[in-house]
């Protein structure tokens, strides 16, 4: 078991024939992901990486039965691509692109909600179910199969945590990079219950960072509903207020969204919070009773 995606998930790529789309689609296929086609307007009817190219998402869905779209289009075209996917009946859009304007995400997400489509990202490494399906840009080999679920706002911290978890002798069920933008699709609060319901997931690692209050919402949810152990790290304890730390959403504004308040809320919810990201693996060992 796993969450959201598995070996049978059929995936199309929007921005399939572009440089990034091509490179990563190929990597995903090598990992075992069922990439069944892609969309590049104007190139419909061609073949790319041995798969059909379509002009519209609607055609792609009709012809392939894909339920997930991996989006690599440039930032200015993300909202259009997301809405097209939602309109065509895609169930989950994974947006890798970095640099989408907030206003565009505001409209795109509202539309996706209306059409019942889930979003992961934008500005994220994607989602991976170990040994089954990788939809994104993460190095697949780090994610050995196991019983730990992972949710993270940061790409490289996802790899770092997965690597530590594996070094401690555990592995990953599914890892989801939710992205560090001010407006994102699925967040901790929606993903935690999926991991709670997944029998193969025995514990959860959650990586947050400064800015916004998603981690606080997660803490409230964990306190009420999550019975599995959760290990958390919040990046940016040493970040100055008012400065944007790389990610568009990683900013302490008006004195709120600090690491300290998030860590306190998670601790109060019974989460094992580590101060140093170097201790994530060890903390998993502890909560797993090893």
């Amino acid at each position: 078991m796993s969450i959201l995606v598995n070996k049978d998930t059929k995936v199309i790529v929007q921005g399939f024939t572009g440089k990034e789309g091509t490179f990563h689609a190929e990597q995903c296929m090598a990992y075992g992901t069922k990439i069944v086609g892609g969309v590049t307007p104007g190139k419909g009817g061609q073949e790319h990486l041995g798969q059909p190219v379509f002009n519209t998402v609607e055609e792609a869905v009709r012809a392939t039965g894909a339920t997930v779209s991996m989006i690599f289009v440039p930032p200015a075209f993300v909202s259009d691509a997301v809405m097209e996917a939602a309109d065509a009946g895609i169930e989950l859009a994974v947006i890798i692109t970095e640099g989408t304007p907030v206003k565009d995400m505001m409209y795109a997400k509202a539309y996706a909600v209306k059409k019942n489509m889930m979003i992961i990202g934008p500005n994220c490494p994607g989602i991976i179910t170990a040994d089954e399906c990788k939809i994104g840009i993460m190095p697949g080999f780090i994610f050995k199969k196991g019983n730990i679920g992972l949710i993270s706002k940061s790409g490289t911290l996802t790899y770092e945590s997965a690597n530590q978890v594996v070094k401690e002798g555990f592995g990953i069920t599914t890892a989801v990079g939710i992205g560090g933008d001010p407006i994102i699709g699925l967040s901790y609060k929606q993903l935690l219950p999926m991991f709670e319901a997944d029998p193969e997931t025995h514990a959860i690692v959650m990586i947050g960072e400064i800015g916004g209050d998603l981690e606080i919402q997660a803490a409230a949810y964990i306190k009420e509903h999550i019975t599995k152990p959760v290990v958390a790290f919040i990046a940016g304890q040493t970040a100055p207020a008012g400065k944007r730390m790389g990610h568009a959403g990683a900013i302490i504004s008006g004195g709120s969204g600090t690491a300290a308040e998030k860590m306190a809320a998670l601790e109060a919810a019974g989460v094992k919070v580590v101060v140093s990201p170097a201790d994530i693996g060890k903390a998993i060992s502890e909560v797993m009773g090893k």
Partner: peptide, 14 residues
């Protein structure tokens, strides 16, 4: 990576 960059600062502090 921005997250690891912040995490590295935090580790140095720790």
């Amino acid at each position: 990576g921005a997250g690891l960059a912040m995490g590295t600062m935090d580790t140095i502090n720790y």
